[in-house]
Structures are given as C-alpha cells and as structure tokens.
Amino acid sequence: MTPHQSKIEKLIAQLCPNGVEFKELGELVNILDSQRSPVTREKREIGEVPYYGANGIQSYVKDYIFDGTFLLMGEDGSVINKDGSPVLNWVSGRIWVNNHAHILSEIKDKALLRYIYFSLQKTDVTKLVRGTPPKLNQQSLRGIKIPLPPIAIQEEIVTILNSFTELEAELEAELEAREKQYEHYRLELLMFGEGIEWNTLSEVAHFMNGKGHEKHIDENGKYIVVNSKFVSTEGRVKKYSVKQISPVSKNDLLMVMSDLPNGKALAKCFYVDENDKYTLNQRICALTVKNNEKINAKFLFYILNRNKQLLRYDSGADQTNLRKDDILEIKIPVPSIAEQERIVKILDKFDALVNDISIGLPAELSARRLQYEYYRGKLLTFNEYAK
C-alpha cells in the first residue's frame, strides 16, 4: 500500500465513512457545446492550433475558440471504446473544436476536472449511445452518474493516477526514442545506390483493396479485421469478423492507405504470419510478391513500411488518401536474394526488441497500463451514500 492510498483510506474513514453521493455529470462541469464551431476542410486555414473532432485531432488551423484546460468527449461517430467507456481527450492550451465532441470545463469547488476524467475512463456508457452513426447526446451526457467524494480525496486520487500516467508517458517517450534509433538503422540498411536494379512496385507485387466489414463485426468472430488501428498498434488492438470477406495469405503485406494529417498510420505495413486468420478492411491494401526468387516478401515489407515516397502525400492539413497508382508507382530496390535475406535477419532482431510485447520496454509499458487500470478501478469504487 502506498502512502497516498493509506492517506485516502484515512480520509474516507474521516470524511465519508458511510459512502459518497453519486451526482449527475451535468451538475459537476460546465458544458461548453454552444461555443463549438465546425469548419469544413476547404475553409480551414493551416496553422499550429489543434482542430479536434470526436476521436482527437483532425487537423491544425490558424485560429482558436478555446484556451485553457478541457475534457473532450466524443458526441457522434467515434464515441465509445471497446470496454464501453466514452472516447475522451484531455487537452490544454489553445484549441478549436468541431460539433462532434462535447467540451467540459471545471466548476471550481464542485469537482476536479482531472478526477472527472479518471472517473469517466471506467464508466460504461454503452446504454447511452444510440443510432447510426453512434451518438452520445448532451442530455445523456448530463445524466451520467459520478461518485463524488470530498475534494481532499479527489486530490489524492488524482495524485496517484497522475503518477501512473506520467510513468507511462516516460516509457512511451523512451520507446519512441528506441523506435527512432531502429528507424535510423533500418534506413541505413535499406539505402541503395545506382549499382543495383530498381523496379516499380507494380512490377514486383500484385495489389488488392480491402472491403467494409461493418455488418459482420462480432467479438466472437473467427477472423481478425485488419484495419488502420490494428496495423498502427502492431496488432494489439483487434476487431473480429464472422466472415472473411477479403482473405489474405501468409507473406502478404498489408498497408494503411488513409490517415489523419501528420498521423503515424499512413503507409504503415503489417506482415501476414499465417493463412485463414485475417480479413482485409476498406482503405487497407494487400500486396503479394509476384516472384519469390526475385523479391523476399519480408524484405519488401521493410522497404514499404512508412516509405517516404508515400509519406510525401501527407499535406499536414487534411486527411491523406493514397490511391492505388500512388502506391504501385513507387521505386523498389532489388539487390540479390542473399543480400535481402541478410538485411531481413538483422532487421527482424531490431524489430523484436522494439515491438515485441513480451520483450523489454513494450512489456514494461503493457504491465504499467494494466497496473494503472487496476488501481484506477480500486480507487474510484465507492459505496453510494444512502440518504
């Protein structure tokens, strides 16, 4: 037990031994939705101010409509996580928000906004979300019940949970530094001059587009749906389908074709490790090597993953949508098969150290996230006071 936890238990015994009141969210925060202002892509002036939608930053603009610390909650579209909790974004500074995210600010002496943020992270809003696309309207938002201990207890809870998120941020920064180091070595190994053969991607690989799976998503489905979230998280975030609408085969390369401005998913690739396991979602393409005696599929994966010839299409202002021709016209180096295999062997080792969830930093980061979720659940569970 940490000193903070011990202090919380003493405060509960002193201030609320019989439980706490559960209050509606609408009583605890300011809801600033009336001040939102959507701007179409065509009318947005490119700048450095984050422009937020339901699930986060959509682009960057010149002007702002809010300046401070706020909690954003998805209103329609991307509004709910797999565990039933609402999609939340904690933001500070100057921002612009469109009409797809609710905007919450703190009411002094009522509740700490950071406490509200942590509490909502473990709140199931499944029954409050309605329609297609999914929508969490303001009336439902206002009615969400939040356990409200005294401010002194809220402060201690926030201190503990902030320490977890800060440690997680440090690990993420260290992992990002390791990834940059890996990327440096990858680029060094994949730098070729004019002494070797170069082909267009269309000459060495077949192309296939994915298809929508919305009607077949089921957590008990047999097939993993390869979408941008799956690829960008190295396969850690999964959805399942009961139908394999777009089958892919072992050694195929799957690439994300669409992403938000300055996103990290565009042109990111996934290497298929076995047959009859995956189904390809829309805006993800599959590339199959035409001649294995000429191109090693794993070598091609390393060449294509976040390839700069494709990243140049990201304007930094609007969503990027790669076309089939954009992808197939890029140039691919073709050294000898022996050289390709040598490079693959080296990069496989680097890749495992950086991305393998069972090794080093990724494993520690995963453990810390589980620990955070455990303590968050424990700290935010209160008995309701019976009046």
Rank of each mutant, 00 (worst) to 15 (best):
L161V: 14
N275S: 12
I224C: 07
G68F: 00
L32I: 05
L310I: 07
E214Q: 13
E24L: 02
N275R: 08
E176F: 10
Y375C: 06
H213R: 12
K277I: 04
Q181P: 09
S202M: 09
D325F: 05
I224V: 15
N99L: 06
T132E: 09
G77E: 01
E42Y: 04
N262Q: 12
Q371N: 07
N305I: 05
D259R: 07
K324W: 05
Q244T: 09
L120H: 00
D351S: 15
T123D: 08
D259M: 06
T320C: 11
L128H: 11
Q14H: 13
G210F: 03
K277C: 08
I327N: 00
S249Q: 14
I337A: 03
P333M: 14
D124P: 07
Q282V: 07
G53Y: 02
N275A: 10
G131S: 10
C285T: 02
K238A: 01
G360M: 07
A363E: 11
P38M: 08
E168M: 13
S78M: 08
N355K: 15
G77D: 00
G56Y: 05
R369N: 03
M208K: 12
H213L: 04
S249K: 13
V242D: 05
G263H: 10
F299P: 00
L72H: 01
N55L: 06
A152E: 15
N281G: 08
I8M: 02
W198E: 02
V242A: 11
E194M: 06
Q319K: 10
L171C: 09
N30P: 02
E166C: 06
L161H: 00
S163G: 09
D273P: 00
T320D: 01
A363D: 09
F118C: 02
K239R: 12
P261H: 06
I95S: 00
L380V: 10
N292C: 07
F350M: 10
A367S: 13
A317V: 01
N98F: 04
G84R: 12
I103P: 01
S37D: 13
E214R: 12
I57F: 10
T165W: 08
E203N: 12
K294R: 07
S105F: 00
M255W: 02
N281R: 11
D252Y: 04
L120Q: 04
L141M: 15
C269T: 14
N262L: 12
N291W: 06
Y375P: 02
R114S: 06
E194Q: 14
N262V: 11
T132R: 08
N321G: 09
Y115A: 08
S85Q: 12
C285W: 00
N89V: 04
A267N: 08
L136V: 09
R44P: 03
F270K: 04
H216C: 07
E75I: 00
E9L: 14
I57E: 02
I359H: 08
Y278C: 01
I359C: 08
D33A: 11
E155F: 06
I224W: 03
F207T: 07
V344N: 10
F270C: 09
T123L: 13
L365G: 03
